[in-house]
Design a binder for these strands. Structure first.
Lengths: 267, 267
DNA sequence: CTGGATTGTCTCTTACAAAAGACACATGTA
DNA sequence: TACATGTGTCTTTTGTAAGAGACAATCCAG
C-alpha cells in the first residue's frame, strides 16, 4: 500500500490515481484521509467541503463523520455544521505522551531551553518519512513565527532534517526526498548530492547549523537525540536571528548539544 | 485476560445492540474499540491480547493494526510485538488543543492554580456522558494520587460531576448514571434522588464540595466553567486533604470560582 | 420570485472487506 | 520426544458497508 494520497498535493488534479477508476475505498482509509485533511487545514471544516477535500462521496462522508462524532474522535464545531478534532483524540494523544519517555522529557527540555535562552526551541522527529515539529516553545522575542506543533516541512529545508537522516542509506534518502522538497521557499534549488553531503557532515559533527533556508531572517541550530548509539530518534533545535554573533551561536550549540545528549538513551 | 471487554458493554446509550452472534463488524468500529481498549489499558499490548481484548478475530486484528501502524495512529512498542498509540494521535491531539480555546486556557489556569495553592488541580469535562479528567496538575504534597489525564470516573463520585450535570433534565441524568455508578469505592451506595438533589444545589450555589467520596482522605472542591450562560462546559477542581480547615477551604473555593469564572465565555 | 448551490437524510445494489481457517514457525514444558 | 500455546501470513467465502442517486429543506444572488 503506497498511499501517496492526493490530498497532500492537490485536491483536484490527480495524475497519480491509484486505479483508473476511483474504486470503492475502505471506510477506515476514508477516515484516515479525513483526519489527515483536518490536520492540514488546521480548522473546522464543513462536511461538504470535507467530502470534496478527501475526494469521497458525500453520503459516505456524512455517515463516517457521524460515526466519528459519536465516538468522540471528531466534534461538531461552533456554528453547527463544521467538524474538527474531538476530545478523544486529545486524550489518546496524552496517552501517547505518557507512554513515551522521550517525548515527555523532550517537551520538558525544550520548554526549559526556550525559557533559558529566550529563543524559539523545538523538538523534531521523523514522522512517516517527513520532518515534523513535535513540540515547540515560542521564546521571548517580539515577533517570532509560531511554527505550529505538528507542522511538516521538507527535510532539506532544515538543520534537523540533516541530522535525522544521518546514517540512512543513500537510496532511502532519495526515496524520502521528493524533487519539490529540494526547492527552498525562496525558489533556490538544492542539489541532492549537496544535501547528502550535508547529512554526512552533520552526522559526523554531531550538530548542524543552517542559515536563511526557510526564511531570510533566521538560522537554525540542531543537535541529535539518540535512541541507541548511532540511531537518531529526534533532534532539538533552536531558531535564532540570522545575525546572531558567532560567539553566541557557539555557546548556544554547546548548550543545545548538552541538553540533547541528556535526552539520549538514559531511559 | 478473562475479563470480557468492559468497554463493549456500553458503547453508547439505548438499543440492545448486543446480538447473539458476534456477527461481522465494521472495520471502523473495530478500530474504535482498539483505541478505546488501549486507552483503558494505558500500556502497549500484544496483538494477540488486543484481539482478545476487543473480542475480534485475530486475522482481522492483525490487518487493522498493520494499517493503523502504517498510518502512524499506532506504533509498535519497545520489544517489537506490542502496539500502543502513535505520534499521529499526539499531533491530532495537539491540533485539538490549539483549536479549542477553553482547553488551552484551562490547562494554563489549572497549572497556575496548582502551583499557587500547592494542591492537585484538575480540569474536568463531560466526555460521551462520562466524567473525564481532561488535564491535571499534581500539586506539591508529598504523596498525591496521580489522577491520570483521561481517567474516567462515575459522575456521582465527584464534586465536578454534580456541577457538570446542572441544568440537565432528570431523565437525561438517569440515562447517564448507571446503577454501578451510584456505588462508591468504599461500598456505600448513593440514592439517585439524593444525587439529583445535590446537582440542583450545586448548580444554584455555583460550586460544590464533596468529602471522602472517592477516598477517605481527600475532599474535592469544584467550580463550573460556562460556555454560555447556564451551560456548564467544564469544571475546575481542587483535591485537598479532608482535614483542611473550614477557613482555608472557603478561601480556596473563592479562588477556584474566580479562576473558573475567568475561563467562562470570554471566548 | 426563481434557479442554482448547499445541506442533511434515505434507499437500494453489489463490490469488497471481515472473518474463518489452514499453514508455518517459533516458543515453552511435561 | 510429543504437546500445547503464541505468533504472523496466507487463501477462500459471504455478509454488508460503500457508493450512487433521489429527496426535501435551506440559503443566497440576481
Amino acid at each position: 500500500m503506497q498511499d501517496g494520497n492526493a490530498l497532500a498535493a492537490r485536491p483536484d488534479i490527480g495524475p497519480d490515481e491509484d486505479k483508473i477508476s476511483v474504486s470503492r475505498e475502505k471506510g477506515l482509509n476514508r477516515v484516515l484521509h479525513i483526519l489527515e485533511f483536518l490536520h492540514t487545514t488546521q480548522r473546522a471544516v464543513g462536511i461538504g467541503d470535507l467530502a470534496k477535500g478527501v475526494n469521497a462521496p458525500r453520503s459516505t462522508t456524512y455517515t463516517l463523520v457521524r460515526e466519528l462524532v459519536d465516538a468522540g474522535l471528531l466534534e461538531m464545531a461552533g456554528d453547527g455544521n463544521r467538524v474538527y478534532f474531538g476530545k478523544k483524540l486529545y486524550l489518546y494523544g496524552m496517552d501517547y505522551v505518557r507512554g513515551n519517555d522521550l517525548l515527555r522529557r523532550g517537551r520538558q527540555e525544550v520548554d526549559n531551553l526556550s525559557r533559558e535562552t529566550g529563543e524559539t526551541s523545538e523538538l523534531c522527529m521523523l514522522q512517516s518519512g517527513r520532518y515534523t515539529i513535535v513540540h515547540s516553545s515560542p521564546g521571548t522575542r517580539p515577533f517570532r513565527i509560531s511554527s505550529a506543533t505538528g507542522l511538516q516541512i521538507p527535510l532539506p529545508w532544515t538543520a534537523s532534517g540533516r541530522l535525522l537522516l544521518a546514517g540512512f542509506e543513500r537510496t532511502v534518502i532519495e526515496d524520502m526526498v521528493s524533487e519539490d522538497d529540494l526547492v527552498l521557499p525562496d525558489g533556490r534549488r538544492l542539489l541532492l548530492d549537496d544535501f547528502i553531503a550535508d547529512i554526512a557532515m552533520a552526522g559526523a559533527a554531531g550538530y548542524c547549523v543552517t542559515s536563511g533556508l526557510v526564511d531570510a531572517y533566521t538560522k537554525c541550530l540542531a543537535a541529535p537525540v539518540f535512541s541507541a548509539p548511532g540511531k537518531v530518534e529526534a533532534t532539538m533545535c533552536l531558531v535564532v536571528p540570522i545575525d546572531t554573533s558567532e560567539e553566541k551561536t557557539v555557546d548556544l550549540i554547546a548548550l543545545l548539544r548538552e541538553r540533547a545528549a541528556r535526552l539520549s538513551i538514559a531511559g
